[in-house]
Amino acid sequence: MTISAATEHDAEQIFKLQYLCYQSEAELYGDYSLEPLTQSLDALRAELGDGCVLVARLGEEVVGSVRGTVDGQGTAVITGLIVHPRMRRHGLGGRLLGALEERLAGECSARLYRLATGQRSEGNLRLYRKWGYAQTGTEQVTRKFTLVTLEKAVGAAQEVQEAVYVPSA
């Protein structure tokens, strides 16, 4: 398994994986109009050029991806964390998140990480809390869907990563 920067050649695989991964979210909320399911391939290609996009590969297959951008105040917005259903529950989501955090802090001077997920997405919420994110807000998007925003300071990221990756002595 390798994690690396995505290239424009990865766009179609990311697009298909995104569609596959968000089926369970759509079912959970009874809403198949979620943006990741309606996004065009051209819009995804544009995102690849706008920020940092990482992919996880198993051989030539893209089995995970995550995106992030940093604004002028140093806030990194992390989106699109996806892991192929057959690869879930093996730590790949955390590895992708950690790699993106490291890159956004080192190359883009991020000072704060922000991400969001649906209120019923317990697996996502559990992962983000494990990585040190705390809830900072909610927004009711539709009658059925409330978006939960979570944040953590960049300094907290290193502490959490060390706790996860460094074996105890």
Rank of each mutant, 00 (worst) to 15 (best):
R95A: 15
A43E: 11
L125E: 12
A26H: 11
T149D: 05
I78Y: 03
A26N: 09
L34Q: 13
R111M: 00
I14C: 13
D71I: 03
F15I: 01
G64M: 04
T75E: 04
E159M: 11
L54K: 05
R126E: 15
V141Y: 01
T117A: 13
Q23T: 06
D50W: 04
V160C: 14
M87V: 03
L81T: 04
R45Q: 14
T7C: 06
L150P: 03
G64Q: 03
M87K: 10
A169M: 07
E8P: 12
R67E: 10
K16D: 13
M87Y: 14
R88A: 01
S109P: 00
R86E: 14
G30A: 04
V83D: 05
G30L: 03
L81S: 03
E8V: 12
Q158S: 15
S168Q: 09
V148N: 01
A26M: 10
A43V: 03
R67I: 02
Q135D: 10
P167W: 12
F145E: 04
V53Y: 11
A105Y: 06
L20R: 14
I14L: 13
V148Q: 04
L100Y: 03
N124T: 08
G98R: 09
P85R: 07
T138A: 10
V53L: 07
Y19E: 14
L104A: 06
S40E: 06
L115M: 12
G51L: 04
D31Q: 06
E12K: 08
R86Y: 08
E35V: 11
L127A: 10
T75V: 09
R120L: 15
L104C: 08
L97F: 04
A46R: 12
T146M: 00
R103T: 10
A11D: 05
E139T: 08
S65A: 15
D42I: 08
P85M: 07
L125R: 15
A105L: 07
Q18H: 13
E60T: 09
H84W: 08
V141F: 01
R95L: 13
C52G: 00
L127R: 05
S4F: 05
L97Y: 03
V166H: 11
R86G: 10
R143I: 05
A11S: 11
Q39A: 07
L48I: 15
Y29W: 13
T69E: 06
A6S: 13
R114G: 01
V63S: 03
E107A: 13
K130M: 12
Y19R: 15
L41T: 06
T138R: 12
L81F: 01
S4E: 15
L150W: 01
A153M: 07
G68T: 02
N124L: 05
E47F: 11
H90G: 09
T38H: 06
H84L: 04
L37Q: 10
G118D: 04
E27H: 08
D42A: 14
D42T: 10
Q18G: 11
D50C: 09
V66T: 12
D10W: 08
A56H: 06
S121K: 02
T75F: 02
V70T: 07
A6W: 11
E162W: 06
F15G: 00
A46G: 05
R45P: 01
R111W: 00
G51F: 04
G137L: 08
H84K: 06
W131N: 12
Q140N: 09
A11M: 05
V62P: 04
